[in-house]
């Protein structure tokens, strides 16, 4: 058997080189060419610009911690929070004391910030996402933040609520995935509505 394997090494090496050129170079280069010609914006990461400056990606969440005038994102386990160079989940188990402590702490903080009764705080405000880069929050959590954001910005509650609705997506074709609110796009729209530059 061993000598049979040795005898096959030459075709093996040749096949690997040929297939690497085909699958490892030609194929990804052709697709990159296609993507860059047909949908360059998406292929480059759906970047969002304001006044010509890249402020993020509509697909990648950001941290708005300690910025009460903005809608808050979910807790994140990616680096120090929303670091795309360290995408990660917490990987804590369902009985983890650390996870339980974190959930209680977040509940207290969210209840204090938004005036939500502690028992009602939306789960996605308490639990970290899989990627640590989740760009969305649930419509329920967004709803809990409307009063506070309106107050901080001096906007009417109804104006803020209208913006939340605008950046809420339902389930795709009615039944795929879950309803969600894009936090970065919503916060950008809020800045435009408030007329603040930053």
């Amino acid at each position: 058997m061993f000598t049979s394997v040795l005898r096959q090494l030459t075709p093996a090496l040749r096949a690997m080189v040929v297939l690497t050129v085909l699958l490892g170079l030609a194929y990804p280069l052709a697709l990159t060419g296609f993507a860059q010609v047909v949908v360059p914006g998406r292929a480059d990461g759906s970047l969002v610009k304001r006044d010509g400056v890249v402020v993020g990606s509509s697909l990648i969440g950001q941290s708005f911690a300690d910025q009460p005038q903005y809608f808050q994102s979910r807790p994140s386990a990616a680096g120090d929070g929303y670091d795309p160079l360290a995408s990660s989940a917490s990987n804590l188990g369902p009985e983890s004391p650390d996870l339980l402590a974190a959930i209680n702490e977040r509940r207290t903080a969210a209840a204090a910030l938004d005036g939500t009764p502690p028992a009602d705080v939306a789960p996605d405000a308490l639990e970290a996402s899989g990627s640590g880069l989740d760009p969305h929050i649930s419509p329920r959590y967004a709803g809990q933040q409307v009063d506070r954001v309106a107050r901080e910005r001096g906007l009417s509650e109804s104006a803020v609520r209208r913006l939340v609705e605008k950046y809420t997506s339902g389930r795709t074709i009615g039944f795929l995935g879950e309803p969600r609110v894009n936090v970065l796009l919503l916060n950008l729209a809020l800045d435009r509505a408030s007329g603040t530059a930053d």
């Binding site: 989940a89 789960p123 996605d124 308490l126 639990e127 996402s129 899989g130 969305h136 995935g177 879950e178």
Partner: peptide
């Protein structure tokens, strides 16, 4: 305690 099994899950899914 959190009210859902959303730890490690994405909102859109």
């Amino acid at each position: 305690a959190a009210g859902a099994a959303m730890e490690g899950k994405e909102t859109r899914f």
